[in-house]
Simulated assay, not measured.
Amino acid sequence: MKKFTAILLSMVFLLSFFTPALAGKKAEPPQKEAKYAIPNSVMNITKENTYPNPTEDLPFLQPSELAKELIDSSRVKIENPDLIRMLNETSINSTPFAIGYRAIVYLGEWPLSYESAETSPNWEFQKINTNYYDNRGGTAPYKIHYVQEQQKVVRGGLTAKIKNAPDVQKMMLLTAAKKTGLPLAFETVIGAGTKKDQIYNIQPKRLGYLYGYAPAINEKGKVTYGEVYLMLKGNKKMIVVKNVTSQGIGAWIPIQDHVSFGFVSSERPR
């Protein structure tokens, strides 16, 4: 027993010796790689933009208690905000004398949900501006900065024709914005005269070109369609979806109020 006590005391002593040393070093959480980190060449022009873009705010519509009950009763996922809004406006009064009552209401064919397969940025989606200066006759570096020469409208859209395109666009926009955390819109405008103070030097005997690009997100995935029925059977109410189909779809969604810059210096005109 004495021998066991001595071993136990030794272990306690060793633990008290190592604990302060270990306590001084906190375990660092693993660094998460930002999948959609904005490169240094891409700058936010929200404050500088001479055209105030409206914020594309499409929050996920919260279903009412009845709408949630109906959505949960469906075997097919329902995420379409417009369909959820319609279900939110639906009112069904239950009655204790509904035994034997049965009704089926056809609500139409709807795009029900969108499942994302790939979300990738293209920082040079569309060229929107070129600032140029010829310093071949100069003796000192010339400083050039971005000035938008003309107003530019940048539009995205679906990559193929599809039924109920506006509904599909809304679901794709919601998904892409949530995945990237970026301000996305299917249309963004860069106003004429928009400037940025970032300086680029053009050395003597050279020409300088400062290109401006509108970045965008390329969203690809699958949209699910179905014929939606509201079924009332006694006191029970449920959503039944028939003739379910799926279709692959892609979209380009511009990143609002952002410009990607590319500077090129050369001895000859480009």
Rank of each mutant, 00 (worst) to 15 (best):
D82E: 14
P111V: 03
S91D: 14
Y106Q: 13
T90F: 11
R85K: 15
R85T: 11
I84A: 07
T90H: 05
N80Y: 02
I128S: 01
N129M: 00
M86R: 14
G108K: 11
T119N: 11
P96R: 03
R85Y: 11
W110P: 04
A98L: 04
Y114E: 12
F125I: 01
I99W: 12
N93V: 14
F97V: 13
Q126K: 08
P121V: 07
L107S: 08
R85P: 08
N129F: 01
A117S: 15
E124F: 07
W123R: 02
M86G: 11
G100K: 03
I84Y: 05
L87I: 06
R102D: 13
E115K: 15
N122L: 13
A117F: 06
F97R: 14
S120Q: 08
I128R: 00
R85D: 14
F125G: 00
N122I: 12
L87Q: 03
R85Q: 15
F97Y: 10
N88Q: 10
S120T: 14
M86V: 09
P81K: 09
I84Q: 07
T119G: 06
L107F: 12
S120V: 15
F125C: 00
F125E: 01
E118C: 00
L107I: 10
Y114V: 09
Y106R: 09
R102I: 10
L112E: 00
Y106N: 15
P121A: 07
N80C: 05
P81G: 09
G100S: 02
P111E: 12
T90C: 08
N129G: 02
G100P: 06
V105L: 11
P121C: 10
I99E: 14
I104A: 15
L112R: 03
F125A: 06
F125H: 05
P121K: 10
G100V: 02
Y106E: 13
N93Y: 11
S120D: 06
T119K: 06
L83K: 02
N80A: 05
T95H: 12
S94E: 07
S94G: 13
I99A: 11
S120G: 13
E109C: 09
T90N: 08
Y106C: 07
Y106S: 14
P111G: 09
Q126M: 10
K127Y: 00
T95P: 02
N129S: 00
P121M: 11
W110N: 05
R102T: 11
P121W: 08
E118G: 03
I104C: 11
L83F: 03
A117Y: 10
E115Y: 05
F97W: 14
W123M: 03
Q126N: 03
E109S: 14
V105M: 13
N80G: 04
E118N: 08
I92F: 00
G108C: 04
S120A: 12
N88R: 08
N80P: 02
E115M: 11
Q126D: 08
L87S: 02
R102Y: 15
T90I: 05
